[in-house]
Design a protein around this nucleic acid. Structure first.
Lengths: 330, 330
DNA sequence: CACGCCAATGTAATCCATTACACGACCATC
DNA sequence: GATGGTCGTGTAATGGATTACATTGGCGTG
C-alpha cells in the first residue's frame, strides 16, 4: 500500500501538498494539483483511513441505538438514518439493545474513545440523568422517543396531536364510545397518545370510561391486539370504535373482531398507528396515522450533523407532520 | 484525556511497561503491574482506540451485509452475529443493500482501508467473481446464501435435504399431489429447495407437474402467497398439500385458502420454511422447517474469527441442523 | 531600489500506542 | 571470577496523515 510519502516522491512535491490536495485546500496551483492527482492515480493511492481518523481524532461513524430490527417501524427509520449518513460520508453502526442496559452502555462507550462521533437513540434503556450527562460530552439526537424538557435534541411527530386528531375523526363520524388499545411500556409516545385520547374525548363532551382502555403488556404484539379487542367486545356496552397505538395491534384487533363475527367498520371502526407495510397486507386495509419514519431518521441525522459540526444554528426540537390515512377499517 | 505517557509518569515507569500491562504481557513483575494499574485507576486512563487501531492496523469491526432488516429471519441471524461479535470484542456494522450493488461495494470498501477486519454476507448483489477476488484479500464468510464450489467459507442449512425431508413427510401422510410455492429470486436456498422438492417427488414415484409450482415474483411477500395458492386452488386437479419456501408465503397461503373456504389441514396441508415468529402468531399455527437463525449467525462469526486470526484449522463449509416442526397446518 | 506582503510550497512536529532493540541486574555454570 | 543467559525495564523508532511554522519567490508601492 503506497503512503502519502510515496505519492509526494512520485509527484515531486512535499507530503503537505499532497495532504492539501486531498483536503481540497484552495492554495494549490492547478498545475501542482494536476501533478498530484496523476501521481495518486498512477500509484493507486488511497489515504489510510485509520491514520487519518487517529490524527483528526474522529471516526466518521455514528451509533444508532434501536430496540429491535423486527418492527418495520424501526427498520424504516434506520434506513432513513443510514441513507442520510452515507450521503454525508458517515457510516452507521447499529445496536439492538434487546432491553439490555449494559449492552447499551457498552455500545455508547464507543463515543468516549472517539470510535464514534455521535449517536442517535430510537429509544434507551438508560436513565434521563445518564443521557443528559452523556449528551453534554457527545453529540446525541433522540428520535421518536425522547425525554421531554431534558434539553436533548430530538425529532419525532406530535403524538398527542396525532391521537387527538384520530379521535376527533372518529367523533366526527358519530362515534360515542371509543376504545383505546395501548401498551404498558413507559414510552413517551404511548403516554402522549393516551393523553391525546383522553383530552379529545373530553373536548367532545364524551365521558372517559377506564373499561374502554385495554393494555397489552409490554411491546406491540399481534396477540396483544387479539386479547384486547376480545375484552372490549365482552363488555356489556361495547365501543363502536377503537384506537390502537400501533398497526400490529390494530391488525390483531381486526382479526379477532372478524373471528367473533363483528363486521368492520360497520360494527367496529379501527385505527392504527405507524402505517407500516402490514397495514395493507391484510383485508380490510386499516386506517392509520402515517408516521414519516424514513424522514424521521433522515432528519435526525441532519440534526446530528449540525451537532457534530457545531457550526450552524440548530433546532433542538423537531416535529414532523403525520397524516391520517383513511382506508377500509373506519 | 490522559495518555500512556501520563500514566508512565504517574507510575514512574516507561510507556513500554504500561503497554505491556495493557496487553497482558507476562514479563512484568506483579509489583510493577500493581503500580501501573493503580496509576491507570487514579488517572481514569483509557487507551486511545484510534491510536491503537492505527498502530495495529486493525479496527475490531466486522461488516454484515444483509438484504433487509424487516424479514425476521435476517433479524435473528443478525442478532446471533452481533452477540458473538460482542463476545469476542468486535463490533458489527450492518448494511442493508436494498438491492443496490453500488451501496454494497461502497460498504465492502471499508475492508480495504482496514476500517473493518472482515465481513459476513447474508446475501450479495455482486458477482461470484468479485467476491472470490475480495475473499482472497480479506476474511469473508457467507451465511445462508453462498456460491457453491467457490471456495468461500459458508454456513447454512442443507436446503436440499430440508425440502426432501418436508416432502417425504407429506408423502408419508398419504399426499399424492403436492404443490410448491416458491419465488423467482436467484438465491441458492430457493434453488436447492426446488431441487429437493423435485427429487423427493421422483423418489416417491410421484409425477412432477409444472402446474403445481407457483412463483411469487422476487422476494417473499404475503400477497405472493395469496395469489399463488389461489392459482393452485383454481386448478382442475388441486393439490392436497403445498410446500412454501418461507413462512410469510405460507401465512398468505393459509389465509387465502381459508378465505376460499378450504379447510386446513384437511383439504390442504401447508408447510412453511424458517419458523419465524409469525408462524405461531395466527391460527392455525403452521408446520414449518425450523432454521437455527441465531446459531447460523453465531457460527458465521466463529468462522470469521478463525479466518481473521488465521491460526486454527478451519472448516470451510458448515451445515447446521434444521428441524421439521409439526403444528396445525399439516 | 528597497521594503513588505501574499501566495505556494516545504520542513518538521504532532497525534498515541506498540515494539524492536538495548541495557543493566541477577543467576547459573564451569 | 568469567561467561552466558534470562528477566524486567527503558529508549527510541515506527505507523501515516495533518498542520503550525518556515521558506522562497514574485509582485506592488513609495
Amino acid at each position: 500500500m503506497p503512503t502519502i510519502t510515496d505519492v509526494a516522491r512520485e509527484a515531486k512535491v512535499s507530503v503537505a501538498t499532497i495532504s492539501r490536495v486531498l483536503n481540497k485546500n484552495p492554495r494549490v496551483t492547478p498545475q501542482t494539483q494536476k501533478r498530484v492527482l496523476e501521481a495518486i492515480e498512477r500509484l493507486h493511492y488511497e489515504p489510510n483511513v485509520l491514520a487519518r481518523n487517529f490524527r483528526r481524532s474522529e471516526s466518521r461513524v455514528i451509533l444508532v441505538l434501536c430496540p429491535n430490527f423486527t418492527n418495520p417501524y424501526y427498520a424504516n427509520v434506520v434506513t432513513g438514518i443510514a441513507d442520510a449518513a452515507r450521503h454525508h460520508g458517515y457510516s452507521a453502526m447499529f445496536c439492538t439493545t434487546q432491553g439490555d442496559r449494559l449492552r447499551e452502555k457498552d455500545f455508547l462507550d464507543m463515543l468516549k474513545g472517539k470510535r464514534a462521533d455521535g449517536a442517535i437513540l430510537l429509544a434507551t434503556e438508560n436513565t434521563e440523568k445518564y443521557m443528559v450527562h452523556l449528551a453534554e460530552q457527545h453529540p446525541i439526537v433522540q428520535c421518536s422517543e425522547y425525554f421531554p424538557d431534558a434539553g436533548l435534541c430530538h425529532v419525532s411527530i406530535d403524538n398527542y396531536k396525532a391521537a387527538r386528531h384520530s379521535v376527533r375523526y372518529l367523533t366526527g363520524l358519530g362515534h360515542k364510545r371509543i376504545g383505546l388499545i395501548t401498551s404498558n411500556d413507559a414510552y413517551l409516545s404511548t403516554n402522549r397518545r393516551y393523553q391525546g385520547y383522553r383530552d379529545e374525548l373530553e373536548r367532545a363532551g364524551l365521558p372517559f370510561d377506564p373499561e374502554l382502555v385495554q393494555y397489552t403488556g409490554e411491546g406491540y404484539h399481534f396477540s396483544g391486539g387479539l386479547k384486547a379487542v376480545n375484552n372490549l367486545l365482552a363488555l356489556s356496552s361495547r365501543p363502536t370504535a377503537v384506537l390502537c397505538v400501533s398497526d400490529i395491534l390494530a391488525l390483531g384487533a381486526v382479526r379477532a373482531a372478524e373471528d367473533s363475527g363483528v363486521r368492520i367498520p360497520d360494527e367496529l371502526a379501527i385505527i392504527g398507528f405507524d402505517d407500516v407495510e402490514y397495514a395493507t397486507m391484510f383485508k380490510p386495509h386499516i386506517t392509520t396515522v402515517r408516521i414519516p419514519c424514513y424522514n424521521l431518521g433522515a432528519t435526525s441525522m441532519e440534526l446530528l450533523l449540525n451537532l457534530m459540526n457545531g457550526t450552524k444554528a440548530l433546532r433542538r426540537e423537531v416535529f414532523l407532520d403525520f397524516e391520517l390515512v383513511v382506508r377500509d377499517s373506519t
